[in-house]
Design a protein around this nucleic acid. Structure first.
Length: 807
RNA sequence: GCCGGUGUGGCGGAAUGGCAGACGCCUCAGACUUAAAAUCUGAUGUCCGAAAGGGCGUACCGGUUCGAGUCCGGUCACCGGCACCA
């Protein structure tokens, strides 16, 4: 078989006949199969891309053969940092490099032989797409889900520019190596926390990997506790702290503020000012991961002010320490050294008092720090209360004093969407001196990204320096005003693209709600596990927000999610240009064709796990195809008789149906490797039959026909060719996937292993359908020599597998 | 550091708590061939043994169970994410 010829032949035929055009009239049978779209980086698809898209296409084809109207679109997540960095380095405009990369990738994606319907393609960097991304922002704004506040960015004082976390690894600028610090900027946020409860409570209903659901739950991180207000001595200021352990309030020996907290300025005494300023500067250089590390040395300084514990009036010092972060809770914590690990270490280091207020149960080791629940002591009227009740009692008491309340807190933070970069969708807001922040009227969208912009890093958002972009008039008062110079986080673009695909050409609205409500939710979403917390959560948030605005009638965008693993370079590292370990599929495809490569990727790895590249089995797939082709040819060369099934035929037919059953199950679970193993065993069984019988029963032909059908989703070009060789009508993908006849899978008798304890002692043949007593009797009879006169205590029969005799 | 995951022959990888290593690669032997390639057949975890057979084996330590790769507790190693890579 000449793979090059047949690939070209069938791809052309598929295109000419419009085989994969989505039939909108069959929307009631729709199956929305979505693969995460690609970032158009570099020039070529590597083996990893094929790994993402080839097996996913096999799944989509399988669904099609099961009778679904499969919608499988493809597009590009085209805005982002790499194109901009590439432009800074080479001078090639991001638009040029991105569109060129997309064109290359489109061609390469076609070679995979996937059944994408390219009519629905989206590219997020085109105005006809980002117009609606901006529209999304405006809806969020109008519904109170977008707001502006000060937030820190990574700042390189030497390059005078904002850095992405990726560019500031280890706290060092990747361009110049200087120490990265933080700088506050006024930036836009989406109020994702407004949906924290729903995002959390709906997770259990989703058919997603359990680990992903768990990670998302922990990411949202709901905790129930209380907010407690501390007065500041000789001041009107108040400090509010969040705690899940109000039962330890009597043990507070100090209060800590995050260095970024605005209270720090007001609370620092003159005597402490120099020390506090120095400390704040130092902690501005630390990364958040470092700051939250439990093993990092705890540091902190006194502000010189004192807080008053509302429960007992005790004065405790107020400190600044960077193990407290501004973003979580209130940015202030009460220090209970005796009952919290971090507080204990911190207090020990700084010589702050440590006072026990919780006792463990009788006989329990309750050495300090004792962080479990126990019984309150040294806590006045609350002594003797268990932690659970104590927490409530303390908060209730504080509430009656106006000093506290119950509070639910989330680890989830609002989503910062402003980027001080060029290559993104401009934020459709106009800043007017008289009218404040004014949204761009919807009819004025898109706010076009200007082409001629100097985006070399010099301390300003690139768009700020583009006069014709930044200067505009206020849509409300008509006076001169400035556009927002920032662009949207690319996660905003990818939070709604699945809604755009089915209606990608709509120029009146982002999508037609009636149509989208029929096409969504996505039935199967396939992509990397690295998106478990951010992209998947953002997309869920968008869906829920748009639902509440009345644009959608469903709650969740992705009913079922599957993560594929990563194909690493042969050295076991992530493929990257800089490591020089990128595996190109080109050589293999020239040698063997796309189908061999696709099938090898599915056979050689566990799809969910991935692994280091290793091509030692590629040849075996080629061999496998040749074996199948030879069987197809045999259908013409051999003589057949229509006769009842003999023993050999029955066995062959049994293997046929068990194969259909397992391949169908395996495809449903994305266990492509075991599915192909079953197909290979099936081929071996057909060969064994063919070699052992002189005159072939007609069942042989049926078996070969089913083999081609079973193989079709895996190797689409080869299967079309074989289907034609069998004299069948185009196309194999209009055929139904074979269905298992359960009756045919039942053998006449089964072999059971019989063992005594863990020692294997023998095997017995038992007629199918034998009852438990018969099996037990046969098993005891088979091993009675080994029982050494001992009585049989218990017999455990594992159906179809083994009989375990306990003597 | 925190959250989540993974760990099985020379290799890729299979195993609803029930015969570990399916299927394939590599290697070896045999058939066919003048020869080679291709193809076909067989062997192939490891140790002892000529063989029959037996011992040991799923990162490490411990536990639950008639029975553990699988469940539980701990250790180590590696991978993903940690909010401006996408």
């Amino acid at each position: 078989m000449d793979f090059k010829l047949i690939e070209a032949k069938w791809q052309k035929k598929w295109e000419e006949t419009g085989l994969y055009k989505f039939d909108r009239d069959r929307v009631n049978k729709k199956y929305y199969c979505l693969e995460m779209f690609s970032y158009p980086s570099g020039a070529k698809l590597h083996a990893g891309h094929w790994y993402n898209y080839g097996p996913a296409d096999t799944f989509a084809r399988f669904k099609r053969m099961q009778g679904y109207e499969v919608f499988q679109p493809m597009g590009f997540d085209a805005f982002g940092l790499p194109a901009e960095n590439y432009a800074i380095k080479t001078g090639i405009h991001p638009e040029e490099s991105t569109l060129k990369n997309i064109a290359t990738m489109e061609g390469q994606l076609r070679r995979i032989g996937a059944m994408y319907d390219w009519d629905y393609e989206v590219k997020t960097c085109l105005p006809e797409y980002y117009k609606w991304t901006q529209w999304m922002f405006l809806q969020m704004y109008k519904h109170g889900l977008a707001y502006r506040k000060e937030a820190p960015v990574n700042w390189c004082p030497s390059c005078n520019t904002v850095l992405a976390n990726e560019q500031a690894q280890g706290g060092v600028c990747e361009r110049c190596g200087s120490q990265v610090t933080h700088k506050n900027l006024n930036q836009w946020f989406f109020r994702i926390t407004a949906y924290a409860d729903e995002l959390l409570d709906c997770i259990d209903k989703l058919d997603w990997p359990e680990k992903t659901k768990l990670m998302q739950k922990n990411w949202i991180g709901r905790s129930y506790g209380g907010e407690i207000e501390f007065d500041v001595k000789d001041s009107d200021l108040k400090i509010r702290v969040f705690t899940t352990r109000a039962d330890t309030l009597f043990g507070v020996t100090y209060v800590v503020l995050a260095p970024e907290s605005p209270l720090v300025d007001c609370l620092t005494t003159d005597a402490q000012r120099a020390a506090v300023e120095e400390y704040r500067e130092k902690s501005a250089a630390a990364t958040e991961i470092d700051r939250l590390s439990t093993t990092r040395e705890k540091t902190g300084v006194l502000t010189g002010s004192y807080a008053i514990n509302p429960i007992n009036g005790r004065e405790v010092p107020i400190l600044v320490a960077d193990y407290v972060v501004a973003g979580y809770g209130t940015g202030a914590v009460m220090g209970v050294a005796a009952h919290d690990e971090r507080d204990f270490v911190f207090a020990s280091k700084l010589g702050l008092p440590i006072e026990r207020v919780i006792k463990g149960a009788e006989g329990q080791d309750d050495a300090l720090p004792f962080t479990q629940y126990g019984v309150m002591v040294n806590s006045g009227e609350f002594d003797g209360l268990a932690s659970e009740e104590g927490k409530k009692a303390v908060i209730n008491k504080l509430a009656s004093m106006g000093k506290g309340c119950m509070k639910t807190n989330y680890r989830l933070r609002d989503w910062l969407i402003s980027r001080q970069r060029y290559w993104g969708a401009p934020i459709p807001i106009i800043h007017c001196e008289h009218c404040g922040d004014v949204p761009v009227p919807e009819e004025d969208l898109p706010v076009r990204l200007p082409h001629n912009v100097n985006f070399t890093p010099d301390g300003e958002s690139p768009l700020k320096k583009c006069e014709e972009f930044i200067n505009t008039t206020c849509p409300v008062c008509g006076r001169p005003a400035k556009r927002d110079a920032d662009t949207l986080d690319t996660f905003v673009c990818s939070s709604w693209y699945y809604l755009r695909y089915p209606d990608s050409k709509n120029d009146k609205q982002p999508f037609d709600s009636d149509w989208i409500n029929k096409m969504l939710p996505v039935d199967k979403y396939i992509g990397g596990a690295e998106h478990a917390c951010m992209h998947l959560l953002y997309a869920r948030f968008f869906t829920k927000a748009l639902r509440d605005m009345g644009y959608l009638n469903f709650d969740e965008p992705f009913l079922s999610v599957v993560h594929q693993g990563t194909i690493l370079g042969p050295d076991g590292n992530k493929m990257s240009k800089s490591r020089g370990n990128v595996v190109s599929p080109d050589d293999s495809i020239i040698k063997y064709g796309a189908d061999v490569f696709r099938v090898y990727l599915m056979f050689g790895f566990n799809y969910i796990e991935g692994g280091p590249w290793n091509e030692s089995g590629l040849d075996s797939i080629n061999r496998f195809f040749e074996r199948v082709e030879r069987l197809v040819k045999k259908c013409y060369e051999l003589a057949f008789k229509d006769a009842p099934l003999g023993k050999a035929e029955k066995e062959l037919n049994r293997v046929r149906h068990t194969t259909i059953r397992s391949v169908t199950n395996d495809l449903g679970n994305f266990s492509f490797n075991t599915a192909i193993a079953r197909l290979m065993e099936y081929v071996n069984a057909i060969y064994a039959y063919e070699g052992g019988v002189s005159e072939k029963n007609a069942v042989f032909k049926d078996c070969v026909r089913d083999l081609v059908l079973l193989l079709a989703p895996f190797a689409p070009h080869v299967a079309e060719e074989l289907w034609e060789m069998l004299g069948m009508k185009y196309s194999v993908f209009d055929q139904a996937y074979p269905v298992c006849d359960e009756k045919a899978t039942v053998p006449d008798e089964v072999e059971l292993a019989v063992q005594i304890n863990s020692k294997l002692r023998g095997k017995i043949m038992v007629a199918t359908g034998a009852d438990k007593a018969e099996i037990e009797a046969a098993a005891v009879d088979a091993v009675k020599g080994a029982l050494e006169g001992k009585a049989v205590k218990k017999v455990i029969v594992v159906p179809g597998r083994l009989v375990n005799i306990i003597a």
